[in-house]
Structures are given as structure tokens and as C-alpha cells.
């Protein structure tokens, strides 16, 4: 199994992966609380970026409303926990089911009625906005007043109930990011992965090659939604509070896609690298501004915009593909 996973990966890429994993595993021993929180946020974006990449990068379906799957995952797990005392891992199963069902509804409407490209993206925004407004008036989740989880006592870590200190959350999201990476690699090299790439490249030609494009686009949306929903469960249990205005906000959807866009859409490393570059630089900027005693609300958003512009103009494929070519980290052209 492991040897099959590594099949065809250049040795220096394996070495790099090993070194990276070791660095991540060791990070909590050297990082202070602030840095650990930043790392958790980076890994959260790397995780959700990978989930979004399944839909856009592999199957070519542009979602601008992935906050809906984060929000649904977060609310389902948080509600089960606060109302019924059901732990987050059982809650995750419910979250996956709800998010995948929501993805299936959006996908069915779009693909059945040939809503594609930009119009598909607008449809996904519309659904996320419906969810935001709907949850804002939904009493069972405390509507706009917000849903709060009992705050953890840091005395001991309870992995089963996801109550504990930031180090535990760090390892949880690190494991999830690694798992998502392995899942994405398996999907990309599978029969379905090839069909997705064909659909992304030319849907009519894909159909002429016998691919049931409706079915495989539905799989892409549902898998992407299901994977994203764990990001929501993590969000709920890490931050301990949920407001529809925040979790379903379009800025959340945009933040999810920035990592893959900057790192390289459709690549395996792009979403992870992009999350690091973007958040790393944004946090550095914050520190610099703080050091000069400047308080500029919105500086982060402006900075995101500048990064995006630079990448679109200078590196339209994203940061990862040119790096991979330069250092021989990829085999062949894919």
C-alpha cells in the first residue's frame, strides 16, 4: 500500500515530504502560542483548500460558496454536541451526510439545467448566502445570537470530545491535512480522477469518450463538500463559537480558494503551499504593522488582493508548478 502510494514519486520529493512532515510534527515544541495559532489557521486553509481543489482543480467546477459546507459541518456537529452531547467524531458523520446532500442539491440543479462556469459560481454564492440568512433566523441554533460550545478546561486533552489545548488541535488539523493530501492523490490517480480531468479540459470531448459527465460532476461536488465539512467541525470545536454572519460569510469562501489559486489550482501541493505563502506573508505584515504601532483595519484584505494580482499576472499557474519544475520535484508533465 505505502509502496504503491510512493510509486512514481521522485526520491527528492519523498525526502522533502519526509522532512516537512518531521518539521510539522516537531513544531509545537518550538512554536509559542501565537505561532501555533497561526500554524493551525494555515493548516485549516490548506485542508479546506485541498477540498475545494477536488471540485475546481480536478473536475473544473468553480465553487465560490464553499463556506456553506464549512458552516453546515460546523453547525451540525456543534448542535449535536450542545443539545444531545454527541461527540464531534460521530457528529462528523452527520456533518458529512448533510454537506454531501447539500452539494448534491446544488450540483443537481446546476448540472441538470446546464448552469456552468461563472453562472455556476454565482449559484454557489447564492446558496451560501441563503444559508447565512436562513441560519441567522433559525432559533434552534440561536439565530444571529450565535451558538457557543462549553469552553474547554486545559487540564487534560480529550481527543474523543475535541476538548483540549491548541497543541491537540494542531495535531488534529495536521493529521486531517495529511489525510486530505493522500485522499487527493489517490483520487487524482484513479479512474474517476482521469474522468474529472477530461471534464475539466473539455466537457463535450469527455462525453464523446463515453464519460457520464453528470454523474462524475455530482461525485466531485459531493466528495468536495463532504471533505470540506470536517473543516467546519474543526472550526466549531476550535473557536467554540458560531455566528451565521461569520461562518457562512462570502469572505470565508474566498479565503478557502486563495490558497489553491496562489499555490496552483489542480496541483496536489498548490493548496498547501498557497496557504503557507498567503497566511505567512499576511501575518508577517501584521507583525510589521504592529511593530510600527500602526492599526490599519482591512490591511489584510488589501494584502490578499495584491498577492492575488501578483500571482495572476506573474505566475498564472500558481507558485507550485514553476517551483516543481525548477527543482525537479515532479515526474513528467502532470
Amino acid at each position: 500500500m505505502i509502496s504503491r502510494m510512493c510509486n512514481g514519486v521522485p526520491p527528492r520529493t519523498m525526502a522533502l515530504l519526509g522532512a516537512l512532515l518531521a518539521a510539522f510534527l516537531a513544531a509545537p515544541w518550538v512554536a509559542n502560542d501565537y505561532l501555533l495559532t497561526v500554524l493551525i489557521f494555515i493548516l485549516y486553509l490548506a485542508y479546506t483548500g485541498q477540498a475545494w481543489n477536488i471540485m475546481m482543480g480536478f473536475a473544473g467546477q468553480f465553487s465560490l460558496g464553499h463556506a456553506i459546507y464549512v458552516g453546515l459541518g460546523a453547525y451540525v456537529a456543534a448542535l449535536l454536541f450542545t443539545r444531545f452531547g454527541i461527540g464531534p467524531w460521530i457528529g462528523l458523520l452527520a456533518a458529512i451526510a448533510v454537506a454531501a446532500a447539500c452539494g448534491a442539491i446544488i450540483g443537481f440543479l446546476a448540472f441538470r439545467f446546464n448552469v456552468a462556469g461563472v453562472y455556476f459560481a454565482i449559484l454557489t454564492i447564492a446558496f451560501a448566502e441563503f444559508a447565512r440568512l436562513g441560519f441567522d433566523h433559525l432559533d434552534v441554533v440561536n439565530a444571529s445570537a450565535g451558538l457557543f460550545l462549553p469552553v474547554a478546561q486545559y487540564a487534560h486533552n480529550d481527543l474523543w470530545r475535541l476538548r483540549g489545548d491548541p497543541t491537540m488541535f494542531y495535531y488534529v488539523i495536521l493529521a486531517a491535512t495529511v489525510a486530505a493530501f493522500i485522499l487527493c492523490r489517490m483520487l487524482l490517480h484513479s479512474r474517476m480522477g482521469y474522468f474529472w480531468l477530461a471534464i475539466r479540459e473539455d466537457e463535450q470531448a469527455a462525453r464523446a469518450a463515453g464519460i457520464d459527465t453528470f454523474r462524475y460532476k455530482m461525485y466531485a461536488v459531493m466528495i468536495s463538500a463532504a471533505v470540506t465539512s470536517f473543516g467546519g467541525v474543526f472550526y466549531a470545536f476550535f473557536y467554540n463559537n458560531l455566528f451565521p454572519e461569520q461562518v457562512f460569510n462570502i469572505s470565508n469562501s474566498v479565503e478557502i480558494i486563495l490558497g489553491p489559486v496562489i499555490g496552483g489550482i489542480g496541483t496536489l501541493f498548490g493548496p498547501i503551499l498557497g496557504a503557507f505563502v498567503l497566511t505567512g506573508l499576511a501575518e508577517s505584515l501584521n507583525s510589521v504593522l504592529a511593530a510600527f504601532g500602526l492599526d490599519l483595519p482591512g490591511a489584510k484584505q488589501v494584502f490578499y488582493g495584491v498577492c492575488l494580482l501578483l500571482v495572476v499576472v506573474a505566475l498564472p499557474e500558481g507558485v507550485w508548478p514553476p517551483l516543481a519544475r525548477r527543482f525537479g520535484l515532479k515526474r513528467g508533465v502532470q
Partner: peptide, 18 residues
């Protein structure tokens, strides 16, 4: 209408996977 961003081999693999 080849799948432009895929390799020549991958283009044909898509067909063969049917």
C-alpha cells in the same frame, strides 16, 4: 478537441478507461 493540459498518454488513458 484534445484535453489540452493533459499529456498525450493521459488523453488516450481517458478513452481506454471506458
Amino acid at each position: 478537441r484534445p484535453f489540452a493540459a493533459l499529456s498525450v498518454e493521459d488523453n488516450v488513458i481517458v478513452g481506454a478507461l471506458l
